[in-house]
Design a protein around this nucleic acid. Structure first.
Lengths: 218, 218, 218, 218
DNA sequence: CATGAATGAGTGTTCATTCAT
DNA sequence: CATGAATGAACACTCATTCAT
């Protein structure tokens, strides 16, 4: 897997030059709307955000949104997909720069936390509003999410074959465990109003420590 | 902390005799409605469940619901509070029966998983529908949730002072780790359609292992 | 067939005393809304009439309409059914008062034209707006329409067995002929702005003549 | 009256050579769009057919349709006018080939029914969807419809002066009567699912019989 | 207390029409 | 001329909440 295997749709910088003017234009519009929707959803949450709100924010007419997205839900979905795509791009790039499972895991944790920090507002959608886990179900079927899962799995597998991570537990379960820990720390950081000053990504070491060594006193 | 410190409101068996007939009546009505709401929410999810649905299920008139609950959201909230209260009651009772931090932790894990298993349908609300994390935020402020947090913290602290759990990391963070692992296993069990046959609470040993020893190979 | 075989639902005078207060109330509300809808549909036509218009006219809130009717279309349909029911009631009553196929046919024609004259505004819905024929298709399946068809058929059959009407052509086709002639005269009367003064029901004799003797010169 | 008195606009074969290239081009475009619209309207009905559908079917852009037709309704109207024009052309041609009012009437009925049979799909627009009678009102003012009316009237008048048709009833009314009978038979044939096999134009004799001789037993 | 009919604000979505390119 | 992206008004329908009985 490499960075070019990511579907470059939407993200402006990634729009290949060979796309026709029309198609380029289309992707830019989609990006406009996604940006507006991200903002509105983050502010109001899924149910309270209206398509009119989003259109106004994007400075388009209501109907225009429907030229680019099937319906409200698919727009919502696109935002999330786009975010995952972005995170995945970062993860792949950064992880490629280091050697050894431990460092790679550390990089993975660090960049994931950093991404969360930088997209604090966006994640309010999940946190304040609908279907955090429902979305997970739907996302599970999306190609981007699959890519991320594969990459994550590969990472854990590598750690297992390098002898860093135990093999008596399924790769998938180890992966889910690390994910849970990340989500948990992120959420607790997010929850605290004072969390703004603290450094989420600075918790990388502790997380890695807890993940690998557990809670037992030695 | 002991079992009597729990707010006994609502749960029938726990209704103290000294409450007036009126008040007792009132609590029973609330319990009726909560039971109906739990069913309907689990079936349809928060947004698609209507107050009319719930009233019909409880065999009351629409307006009656509003005699006992402020609005839809507070009804929803009450269900969750009630569930936590129930779990908390169980946890406290069972943990009181064993000695030693290790056993207590095991009991905590076992009973939590068992409760999740037995309330599979209820948790669909969180998982399929709204605001898994949003509710967490709101719950954080509710007295029941505080009680559970305190109890959980006390448990970890006990384990730390007994020398089972490391002291170089904050109690809260240790607690979050355990919670993460629980959530991770519970969600994965829930997710699998075949999960019905498998035994979630049977995973207690593995979870305790991962919690104490971490993911590192030894 | 007799007058009691008609479904008396809705029409106020026909509401049997044994209906509960609730049910009576419900039928009155339905009648209110049907009256308002009849007016609005006649004025604006099906597509341009909005549920809001109708609700306003009936002096109810929008949602109230939906307590009594599934949706816009079914409301529209109910109006037509009700009109047919009314006409049918009149036809049955009047025809029962005369003897002989010729007189019965005359009465049928006369009362049909009279009904059309008196409901001029209502028929504008069909004439100016939607789906005159489409509605026919749907109506064909409704019980009221079936009743009217049966009654009409019985009338022609009686005329055939009395020797007034030829038997070498199917009853149904004879029936369609008479219906055609009625429609033709009614529409022409309706079309003329001056038609207001002329007497539609006064054309009974001519219609009966045309129906029986045809257009041929003798 | 002869075939050349028909407005030859639109129909390709009839486009006179003396029209400029521009104008010829224009008429061809209109014909393209009308053909597409006929198809789409027949398929979806007036309200559910969209201009976009029609444009796509005609392989033009949305806006192009508006270069040739005022709006959706006038496009719809043009189709009907064109159909009437076509029927009228046929009627005039066929009727010119026979002698005597009776034969002419028969031809008129036969060709009208045949045309209906052959354009079954097209007539679904009228039958399933909007404004059968509304369109009549509007059409009454269109030149094509006037032409057809005149021709029809002339036919009946001829029958009256030949002594075939009674003169004690207005020509117009006789005409409307025959039209109603035709419509009635056509609709009943159309309505029946089994009608596909039966022969509509084969009913010419019965219709003529009923029209001329009426329903009376002799 | 209980009822449940009535309310009416609120929203996703469609589509005829326009107009800058 | 042709295009088709953009427009935005319009509307059916829902449902939490109220209140007269």
């Amino acid at each position: 897997m490499n960075i070019y295997s990511l579907n470059p749709e939407i993200t402006e910088e990634a729009v290949p030059v060979q796309l026709g003017r029309k198609e380029r234009h289309r992707l830019l519009r989609k990006a406009d709307i996604i940006a507006a929707a991200e903002h509105v959803f983050a502010l109001k949450g899924y149910h309270k955000a209206t398509i009119q709100d989003i259109a106004r924010q994007a400075q388009y007419a209501t109907g225009t949104v429907y030229l680019y997205f099937e319906d409200k839900n698919s727009l919502y979905f696109s935002i999330i997909e786009e975010k995952i795509r972005e995170l995945l791009r970062i993860l792949i790039a950064k992880i490629a720069q280091v050697k050894g499972a431990r460092l790679k895991l550390g990089t993975f944790i660090y960049e994931s936390l950093r991404f969360f920090e930088m997209n604090k507002d966006f994640f309010r959608i999940f946190i304040q509003e609908e279907s955090s886990l429902s979305i997970k179900s739907k996302l599970a079927k999306s190609p981007v999410a699959s890519k991320r899962r594969e990459m994550f799995n590969a990472l854990i597998k590598e750690a297992q074959s390098e002898g860093l991570v135990r093999r008596d537990i399924e790769t998938t379960q180890i992966k889910e465990l690390l994910e849970s820990i990340l989500v948990s720390f992120a959420f607790n950081w997010w929850k605290e109003p004072s969390g703004q000053e603290k450094d989420l990504k600075g918790m990388t070491a502790i997380i890695l420590d807890l993940f690998l060594n557990g809670a037992k006193k030695r």
